[in-house]
Design a protein around this nucleic acid. Structure first.
Length: 306
DNA sequence: ACTCTTTCTCGAGACGAG
DNA sequence: CCTCGTCC
DNA sequence: ACATCGAGAAAGAG
């Protein structure tokens, strides 16, 4: 789920935190990319006309490899040096969210079976895309491909987005490139959006600067994390009846979740049972990541630019 | 009538020939 | 430019 | 045993 409505909040309240750039502006820059997210998109999107994935003769899926291959080439052609980051174990707090997703996939599988019995090709196509999940085989195959291409990758201990942000914070890369707004909450100083397909679709690349976001909202990083929790994140519930508008107002007025809990009328806005907001906050502020100092983000591709 | 939130649904790549 | 078939 | 997300429309609540 990322952070619900965060893009809109930033767009509305801190428009100057977002810059639009041509891809040319990024020549020579290193960028961290969430690999699992990309693989997922390729598995869904890279299909033939009949909706089937691309496969080898023996039936093994190759859609994710095609996608990673061409996209990476495209980036390198433009002078961008990618470093892919793979997910590790999800944090325990995420299990509730993961259970929901599993449930959703099960429902899609049922709908898929029904559609297959009825021979509704449009529905078969739709639901089969919804049952997609990234396996460790997919990940391993992509790691091997990247090795062969001379592109660096990192295996994060936990959330890939957190590791991407850590790399950017430590100046190992210029930015984290992601469509997932969590990355900002993990304190990446710069977040790039639409990096991958901008050239094909003529969309400019969006560059979001965390310090401008904090300035625009007049929040500290801690307050920004609290805001993200109120908006809705993967790690804990949010408060019913509090959406983007009230969330920003509340943090503005009370400065912290503790103070909000203390003053909110529990009849109007009941606080969730066993609310793990502080644990979620710690995950964002001190995520489990590898020390960027120990990571080599230079593949041998770098040699071409030296 | 209006504002805000919640829920539901949908969609997701890249290439090159013409 | 764009559309459309193809990628395995 | 498990692994994604955002956007927008429509409906609902206060």
């Amino acid at each position: 789920m990322g952070i619900k409505g965060l893009t809109k909040v930033i767009g509305d309240r801190c428009p100057n935190a977002i810059k639009s750039n041509e891809i040319k502006n990024y020549f020579g820059r290193k960028v961290a990319i969430d690999a699992s997210m990309s693989i997922y998109q390729f598995l869904i999107a890279v299909r033939q006309q009949d909706g089937q994935q691309l496969t080898t003769e023996s039936g093994e899926t190759t859609s994710h490899l095609m996608g990673i291959f061409y996209r990476t080439i495209r980036m390198v052609e433009n002078g961008i040096k990618p470093c892919y980051v793979f997910d590790g174990k999800p944090p325990k707090l995420k299990s509730g969210e993961l259970a929901k997703r599993l449930e959703r996939r099960k429902e899609a599988s049922k709908s898929l079976e029904e559609a297959e019995e009825l021979g509704e090709t449009v529905d078969i196509d739709k639901f089969s895309r919804r049952t997609v999940k990234v396996t460790s085989e997919h990940n391993d195959e992509c790691k091997k491909l990247l090795s062969l291409m001379g592109i660096p990758y990192v295996e994060a201990p936990c959330e890939a987005e957190a590791q991407c942000a850590a790399l950017a914070r430590d100046k190992k890369v210029y930015a984290a490139a992601s469509e997932d707004m969590d990355t900002l909450t993990f304190s990446t100083p710069v977040l790039l959006r639409h990096l991958t397909f901008s050239e094909a679709r003529k969309l400019p690349i969006g560059e979001i600067h965390l310090n401008k976001v904090l300035e625009g909202l007049n929040f500290t990083m801690e307050q920004f994390v609290d805001l993200c929790i109120l908006l809705g994140c993967d790690y804990c519930d949010s408060i019913k009846g509090i959406g983007p508008q009230r969330a920003v107002e509340l943090i503005d007025k009370h400065k912290s979740l503790e103070e909000i809990i203390r003053t909110l009328d529990p009849k109007k806005y009941p606080i969730p049972d066993d609310w793990m907001y502080n644990e979620a906050r710690q995950l964002f502020l001190n995520p489990e990541v590898l020390d960027p100092k120990d990571i080599d983000v230079n593949g041998f591709i770098l040699l071409y630019f030296h």
